[in-house]
Design a protein around this nucleic acid. Structure first.
Lengths: 118, 118
DNA sequence: ATAACGTATGAACAGATGAGCATATGTTGA
DNA sequence: TCAACATATGCTCATCTGTTCATACGTTAT
C-alpha cells in the first residue's frame, strides 16, 4: 500500500489527505483568537478565580483572601480575564464586584473537568 | 448597606461570602490539572494541529506540510498533545498516524469558538 | 548489514508571562 | 479639601515556553 507520492517529491506526504483538509481550515485569525482564549484558562490563579466566581460575585479583596494571594496579583489577573470577556464588573461605592460574563465559562471548564477525570 | 465586617478586621472582606464559598473549592491538584489542560489548548500551533485532526488522522509530515512548519516543531507539539491525552497515535510501518483521542476536544474547542464569535 | 526514511528528542536561545513592588486612580466620609 | 480605602497599573525580574538545530531511534527494503 501507499504507492503514491513517490515521483520527485520533496516531502513524503499524503496528497489526498492534504487536498481534502486544506480547504476546511478556519482562517488564521480565528485560530489565533481561540488559542488566546484558552491561554487565559491556562493559569492556576485565573482558573481559581473563575471557580470562586462560579459561586458568587465577589470583590477583589475577597478573592485575594480566598486564594491567599496579594491584591495586586489578583487585580492583574482580573484584568486579563476581563479583556478576554470572561468576567465583568460593577462598582458599588469603593468596592468593585466581579462576576462571570457568560455561561461559556462554565461549559468550557466543565468539559475540561470531565476530560481530566475520565 | 454593607454594615458588616467593620470591627477589628485587617482586611475589609465580606465574611459571609468567604464562608459560603470556601468549602466548595475543588482541591488544588484538580485545579492545577485543569489549568495544565487548558494551557495545552492555549497555543496556536497546537490548536491548528487539533483542527486538522478534526478532519482526518494524519502523519507528522502531513501536518508539518499543512501548517508550513518543521517536522521537529510539529513533533514536539504532538508530544505535548499526547501527554495531555488529547491525541493518540498508531504506527503503520515507518509512518505514525495521529488522531484525536476523544470527543472532549471537539466540545471544548467548539465552546471556545462560540465564545469568541458571540 | 546497511542505507533511506519517518519520527523523536536533547540542548540552546529568544520571546512571553506571572508576581512583587511602588505608586497612581477613583470613591467616600469627615 | 483631605485622609482612608479599594482597586489598578507600570516596571522589573525570574521563570516558563516554543522553535531551531543537530542527532538519535525505530522500521523497511535492498
Amino acid at each position: 500500500m501507499r504507492e503514491h507520492a513517490e515521483c520527485c517529491e520533496e516531502l513524503r506526504v499524503h496528497p489526498e489527505i492534504l487536498e481534502r483538509v486544506k480547504p476546511d481550515m478556519p482562517d488564521e485569525e480565528c485560530l489565533y483568537d481561540l488559542a488566546e482564549l484558552f491561554k487565559v484558562f491556562g493559569d492556576t490563579t485565573r482558573i481559581r478565580i473563575l471557580y470562586v466566581l462560579f459561586e458568587s460575585e465577589m470583590c477583589v479583596c475577597d478573592i485575594a483572601e480566598l486564594l491567599s494571594m496579594s491584591q495586586s496579583a489578583i487585580s492583574h489577573q482580573l484584568r486579563v480575564l476581563k479583556q478576554a470577556r470572561l468576567v465583568r464588573n460593577r462598582r458599588e461605592g469603593k468596592t468593585i464586584y466581579y462576576f462571570l460574563a457568560d455561561e461559556h465559562v462554565r461549559t468550557i471548564i466543565g468539559q475540561g473537568m470531565e476530560h481530566i477525570q475520565e
